[in-house]
Nucleic acid binder design. Structure first.
Lengths: 191, 191
DNA sequence: GTCTATACATCGATAGAC
DNA sequence: GTCTATCGATGTATAGAC
């Protein structure tokens, strides 16, 4: 792995753990095993390096979600697979957490990958919900885009609840509740 | 307002805007119009002042939520009132945002008010959902605690979506989706 | 490309005058 | 109680040697 790559990877880890405001160049360099010079040679500064890290994290998240959402199964099953997919719940979402970072939100360039990723996810889920409606799996009255927003919000908020309580249980409960509300009509299934 | 109060209020504002890591004593003092000496006279240090601020914010949030949840109306209507209550969506939740703060999560004393508030909210909502089940407004198969977690998560995650996109629209969409899923059986209502 | 040295501001806290 | 002065450490960035 190149020095530039190690810098980006270290930054990704630290952004996830401590956010943008809580991540210093010094900490990045220590973790990457590099000196000041390397960082300022490859990147213009902290925001530039963070942008590279955020873009990579966003892309990775998109690929992971696509892997599940484009998989086999009925619309409900694919949504369930997305919601139940294994997660390091207490670490939170490496993309969503950035929305609580004032310096990220204030910088359109840093915010863009975050926005685009969550937006992509919502649109992808909205299509799946619409498919489920066509197949009669979901009630015709549901709005795909709204349900998609609810699904993504439940996940993002589930991280908040889990981190507050120090346990993944609340995340799982939120997912369970959402799935029980989404469950295909008239089949009472074990959730 | 006493100096101590002004310090707490300034801290509350800054914690909301910038989080714990992003809030410096200096910024607090400037906003409060006080000097270093005042702060360290009234509080042991930054964590101590933050604790006072977080406790006050948590209490205020609880009171606000209770005002809606204990109000009039059917269980569904009270949940709807809670979800649709006016919010400064783009500012996010002053309590929930703290869960993304590594120094808050690492400190049990600072985390406690956050945990207790969200936990209280979930329990309160769980009772309301159970009431709705008894009254036949919600399907008997629903689990109060899970649905409560979904409701709180949708709100917390709604803030994430809104802040990512720079618009409250996604928050509203998530709420709309959740309400459409919760809507009392067989009455198709305008949502 | 990478390193060390240096710069200057800010961080969180303490000391001590008033 | 509040103020200013000061402290050592860290934050972000630049300079310049190798």
């Amino acid at each position: 792995m190149s020095t530039s790559d190690r810098l980006i990877e270290s930054t990704r880890e630290l952004l996830w753990e401590r956010g943008y405001v809580g991540t210093s160049p010094k900490a990045i360099l220590e973790r990457a095993g590099a000196g000041q010079g390397s960082m300022y040679h490859h990147f213009k500064g902290k925001p530039d390096l963070a942008l590279a890290a955020i873009r990579r994290t966003a892309e990775e998240m998109r690929a992971t979600a696509a892997g599940v959402l484009d998989g086999p199964g009925t619309p409900y099953e694919r949504i369930e697979a997305y919601l139940r997919r294994e997660r390091d719940v207490l670490r939170g979402c490496p993309v969503g957490r950035l929305t609580m970072d004032p310096d990220v939100i204030a910088n359109d360039e840093l915010r863009a990958p975050v926005d685009e990723t969550l937006d992509w996810l919502r649109e992808r889920l909205a299509v799946i919900v619409e498919e489920g409606k066509e197949q009669g799996q979901f009630a015709a009255g549901l709005d795909g885009e709204s349900i998609a927003a609810t699904i993504v919000a439940t996940v993002q908020g589930g991280y908040v609840l889990a981190r507050a309580s120090g346990s993944p249980a609340a995340f799982d409960a939120g997912v369970r509740g959402l799935l029980s509300l989404l469950a295909p009509r008239q089949s009472t299934r074990a959730l």
